[in-house]
Simulated scan of single mutants.
Amino acid sequence: MLGTLKQILTENWQWRHQIWDLAKFDLIKTYRGAALGKVWLFTKPAVYILVYWFTLSIGMRHASDVNGSPFLLWLASGVFPWFFMSDAINTGSDVYHRYSYLVNRLKFPISVISTFYILSLMIIFACTMAFTIVVCLLTGVHISRYILQLPLVMVIMFLFWVAWSIMLSPLGAVSKDFANLIKTLSMPFFWLSGILFQLDSLPPIGQHIMAFNPVAWCCEAVRDCFVYKEWIWSRPDELIPFLIVFLVVVLLALRNFKRLYKEVPDVL
């Protein structure tokens, strides 16, 4: 496995400039031909947040300030990360089909595909986080020192979901049924990961189980920066299970990549 890890790291380092260029090109291609261009980066998540806010706070009357912060900020700091992770779960788990023209290039390292795709998603996520900070400043919401850990949280999320993509993409390339299964599981991830409800409302056993949910940890880590105002390492009962899952994902990624990466060009 160490040899596979060295191979992946070496390929990503050697192609670091191309990774950035490919990530930017992927964004340009996504919004090419749209009159509003980059405005669409914010339109979709903003519309969803407003719909959730209206449903929960007005329709169901089940919304109030969280830890002294507006409910809308709590909602945005969970939904914005979810949009990043949703694409990472769905497309990131089957990224070789999306970029089959690169897979079939003889000298192109396929481990780089996961990296630049997740990076393109991270650029959008970084924009939404910057937008959230600006909105907080304009509306008078207090920005605490805990916002300083946001770059660290984003780096951790980037590394985790790259590993996730490398772990599952070879399986998705070999079996379309597996890729469809992962896409089917994305909706349960949304409803069961505390994006629309507070995890401390669950019974203790539920909170222990949810600690091993990477989607839940990522959303809570972003909320630590904006709403809960805690350092991500101040709750080891949540951080340690996430790190265990992270390690398992990395090991499975190395195993699956080593066993299947030579077969991927043939099946595509």
Rank of each mutant, 00 (worst) to 15 (best):
S69E: 15
Q207W: 03
R61I: 14
D65W: 10
K258H: 11
L150D: 06
F257E: 00
Q207R: 04
I147M: 07
A35K: 14
I113H: 08
D21Y: 07
I240P: 13
V215S: 02
D26T: 08
L159Q: 11
L119H: 12
G3W: 10
A35R: 14
I28M: 12
D87H: 06
P81F: 02
R223Q: 13
G33V: 11
M157V: 13
T184I: 07
I89G: 01
A163E: 01
N12E: 08
S120T: 01
A163H: 05
F54P: 02
L36D: 08
V249M: 00
A221S: 06
W161D: 02
F242E: 03
K229E: 11
I113T: 12
F71I: 09
F131H: 04
M154T: 06
V249F: 03
D65M: 15
L121M: 05
E238R: 12
Q207K: 02
V153I: 14
P214S: 01
A179F: 00
M129C: 10
L75S: 01
M167E: 06
I133M: 13
L119E: 01
R235N: 10
C127P: 07
L5T: 03
I110K: 00
S193R: 02
D266Q: 14
V215N: 02
W74A: 02
A221N: 03
I209K: 06
T184P: 03
K176A: 13
L202H: 05
D237G: 10
R105K: 03
T184C: 05
D65P: 09
G3P: 10
I205F: 11
I133V: 10
W53A: 07
M129A: 09
W191K: 08
V112F: 07
F84A: 02
P188I: 07
I19M: 03
D200L: 08
S120W: 06
